[in-house]
Amino acid sequence: MALPLFTRTRPVPVIESDPEPWSEIGETWMPEGITVVERYWNQANAVVLVYSGDESCYYHVVTCLGCHFNVAHDPDGSRDHRLTLNDAGRVANEHATTCRALSRTIPDRPNDDDARDQLRKTVLGCQLRDKDAEIHLSAFDLGRLTLQRTNGWIETELQQLAADRPDLVVAQTSYGTPKNYFVLPRPEELRG
């Protein structure tokens, strides 16, 4: 009887594990308060989003999730208006073809206190030196990816800010509901 040359066999270990999921890079991300209309990929596969913060989806913002590119107006300067879908697509495509930034992590949804602070900073950024400045919901469009709140939430917070700080924000009502918000100029003693 002949013995085999190699008698010991090692059992093959069975490893049953799910592959690690890919981190979200913006391919399917839809934050609260915005509508993502188009997505472009830059040279390093970071996502360039075209999104809208208004219900009609007429005006758009272009944001790169790789670098800090974020525009709501035509950067060429040839037209001084907000971006329509065609213009936003053109701007996003131009940026995606030249950007080489790697994808950043998607911003987490902030808690309500942090979102209120961001809203107040945006309101203060609209303040003019010597006259009232009207605030439109579009003033918050560039920060929508970090704010991640609906227009209803923003309007409610603006109403609350007008009630809490009448020296800063005034809500002009129409038929009992606030329709327009104005940021008052800084008091004379705070101007520098």
Rank of each mutant, 00 (worst) to 15 (best):
G77T: 04
D80T: 02
L83R: 12
N86G: 01
A88E: 06
R90S: 11
A92D: 01
A92V: 08
N93L: 12
E94D: 14
A96M: 09
R100C: 05
A101G: 03
L102Q: 14
S103V: 04
R104Q: 14
R109W: 01
R109E: 13
D113R: 14
D114M: 12
A115S: 12
A115T: 07
R116K: 14
D117Y: 05
R120C: 06
R120G: 00
L124M: 12
G125Y: 06
G125D: 13
C126A: 10
Q127P: 00
R129E: 11
R129S: 12
D130A: 09
D132L: 12
H136D: 03
L137W: 07
S138I: 03
F140M: 08
F140R: 10
T146L: 09
L147M: 14
L147E: 13
Q148N: 08
T150D: 13
T150Q: 09
N151P: 02
A162H: 05
A163R: 15
R165H: 14
R165Q: 12
L168N: 03
L168R: 03
L168D: 02
V169C: 05
V169T: 06
V170S: 07
Q172R: 15
Q172E: 14
Q172P: 00
T173L: 12
Y175N: 04
G176F: 02
G176I: 01
G176W: 00
